[in-house]
């Protein structure tokens, strides 16, 4: 009925990493296990492995980003790839060049992998369907749809601390509606068999029929936090105040902010997570973000290992496909 999932190559192996929706549990576990191996690399004095030596990775960011772009850059470098940062926010696309023309130019520069961030939901799907088949696409965030490497690094962080997903109660707070991180987290948590995924926020920030994703909607944060093992905050964008979805940041903090008092309602060893950048005093109290239960900086650190895992898996699949074709 709909277009085929572009993420897989003709051998059924992961070729692009775009959207956790199309991936099965086994593949998610494989990514997490591979990332475990790379986490060791990051603790070594020589933080480099030669897996992507001779490969060129291009960071194509059509939307501003420092954190994600830097994490991908570091991941590529630790895999010994050459990395090209292309700033497209101020570049050709603003001169009226079409997205596809921009891509074809970059293709002509013989890159092997594109890391793409774009403001439109579905942009990574579109790009994957239109680039030449020898290029791998990694989605660095598309509109409000998906941020799959963030989703996987969140899973990695949770697994590190909790071991298993089976009995976990995970609470995601705030702007679910506009959050690609929330969608990727929900998708991964549901696939990995999390005990319960709760979303909580004002109705203006909860998307329609969100239950269809496999979550339970809680109107009150206090109720949602009872028994929580993992608490995930989300960044509340400033423009939400302008378009009448939230009256003010202080009211948001009063009703849905993760304060120390509220944190006490959760399990004593509950993890506090946030994809960053945090708005202290809006969605999370500074003392909670910096507190004992916070793993926010670990998330950043693990993000490198997870991105190394994803990049090496898709590149490895392409290599084996190429060799298969040669021997055939």
């Amino acid at each position: 009925m709909s277009l085929p999932d572009p993420q897989f190559n003709i051998q059924g192996k992961l070729h692009h990493f775009i959207d956790l929706d199309g991936l099965d549990r086994k593949l998610l576990i494989e990514i997490l296990d591979t990332a475990e191996g790379f986490a060791g690399v990051n603790d070594r004095t020589v933080k480099k492995v030669p897996l992507l030596r001779g490969k060129t990775v291009a960071n194509l960011f059509f939307e501003n980003s420092t954190r994600t772009r830097t994490a991908f850059e570091l991941a590529a470098k630790r895999l010994s790839a050459d990395i090209l940062n292309v700033d497209l926010v101020t570049s050709s696309t603003n001169k009226g060049e079409s997205l596809l023309d921009t891509l074809h130019v970059l293709e002509a520069l013989q890159c092997d992998m594109f890391i793409v961030r774009h403001g439109d939901s579905g942009a990574a799907h579109f790009i994957a369907r239109h680039v030449s088949p020898n290029i791998n696409i990694i989605n660095g965030g598309d509109g409000q749809h998906s941020h799959p490497t963030q989703g996987m690094l969140d899973m990695f962080t949770i697994r590190r601390h909790k071991g298993d997903f089976g009995n976990l109660c995970v609470v995601i707070i705030g702007d679910i509606k506009h959050s690609r991180v929330a969608r990727s987290d929900i998708s991964a948590l549901v696939k990995l068999g999390a005990g319960e995924v709760r979303v909580v926020g004002p109705r203006t920030l909860i998307p329609a029929d969100v239950e269809s994703l496999g979550v339970t909607v809680y109107p009150s944060l206090d109720t949602a936090l009872a028994g929580a093992d993992v608490i995930m905050g989300l960044r509340l964008q400033k423009e939400r105040m302008l378009n009448a979805t939230v009256p003010s940041s202080s009211e948001f903090y009063r009703t849905y902010g993760l304060s120390p008092e509220r944190l006490a309602l959760a399990s004593p060893d509950a993890l506090v997570m946030h994809p960053g950048p945090t708005n202290r005093g809006v969605e999370i109290a500074g003392s909670v973000a910096d507190g004992r239960q916070s793993v926010i900086l670990e998330q950043v650190n693990f993000g490198i290992a997870v991105r190394m895992a994803v990049m090496s898996i898709v590149m490895g699949n392409s290599e084996s496909l190429r060799h298969g074709e040669l021997s055939a």
Binding site: Q144, H145, S146, R183, A208, V210, S212
Partner: peptide, 13 residues
């Protein structure tokens, strides 16, 4: 259309 599909795809409804 605002609904489950647009929610999953992150499309403005």
């Amino acid at each position: 259309h605002t609904g489950a599909i647009a929610t999953r795809l992150g499309l403005p409804g």
